[in-house]
């Protein structure tokens, strides 16, 4: 008896009238995987650094995220404390072991900091973004102890720190950066693209924020990335 796998591939190849060993086909596939050609890149995101930041901010806000800009990483804790205070949220915050977050002066605030993954009982969490896409106002988050994936989804309020230097114009700008960080063909366990807080329109096509993920998404954009460490 043939296995399901063998049978499935045999059927595929019968339908395509191929054997799977044709050198031209194999070469075409290898070439595409190696070169990863770009397709159509919208003009929208093809801007200078200042233009990309302005577009990112506008698109993120259009997706119901909020954005604060600060001049340096040292200013992040005060900005976060102010955000929580202004929204009548408790002065608690959970974070992973990201060295960029760890280097910030959290002691200058009265925030109660917890570390590690979320078990679903945190109201507020903070993560550091891997990058962002101006075209759509999208944050790019990568999994690991630095920034646990659960922090992106379980807390009611998610705060994300983003270095201005990490904001790319288009979706495709993420991939060379990722390949440089991890190697060609490698991915983090989870890469989360996040565009605004969670929502659902499943009841009578009426859109409401705060489905299963965070009810609010706040982005702290750090203009001076040089001293981020």
């Amino acid at each position: 008896m043939t296995s399901a796998r063998d049978d499935l591939f045999a059927n595929l190849r019968r339908s395509l009238s191929v054997t799977g060993t044709e050198r031209i086909r194999v070469a075409e596939v290898e070439e595409r995987l190696a070169e990863a050609p770009l397709g159509v890149i919208p003009a929208r995101g093809q801007l200078d650094a200042a233009g990309r930041l302005a577009l990112f901010k506008a698109m993120a806000e259009a997706a119901s995220a909020t954005v604060t800009e600060v001049e340096s990483p040292e200013a992040v804790p005060q900005a976060v404390a102010a955000y929580l205070r202004d929204h009548n949220l408790p002065a608690t915050l959970r974070m992973g072991s990201d060295p960029r977050l760890a280097a910030m002066p959290w002691r200058d605030t009265s925030l109660e900091i917890a570390s590690g993954r979320s078990d679903g009982h945190d109201l507020n969490a903070i993560s550091h973004a891997f990058g962002a896409v101006a075209e759509t106002g999208t944050l790019v988050m990568t999994s690991g102890a630095d920034n646990p994936t659960t922090l992106n989804f379980l807390p009611d309020n998610h705060i994300v720190v983003l270095s201005a230097a990490d904001v790319g114009g288009d979706l495709e700008s993420v991939w060379p950066k990722l390949r440089k960080a991890l190697g060609k063909g490698a991915m983090p366990r989870a890469l989360n693209m996040v565009t605004g807080p969670s929502r659902s329109a499943d009841i009578e096509q009426t859109l409401f924020l705060g489905a299963h993920g965070p009810r609010s998404l706040h982005i702290v954009l750090v203009k001076d990335a040089a001293s981020a460490g």
Partner: peptide, 17 residues
């Protein structure tokens, strides 16, 4: 809102997944 790319199970040092 969420476009999620998943590659394999939890890795060494991963706190979740």
């Amino acid at each position: 809102v969420y476009t999620t790319f998943s590659t394999g199970p939890r890795r060494a040092g991963d706190p979740d997944g």
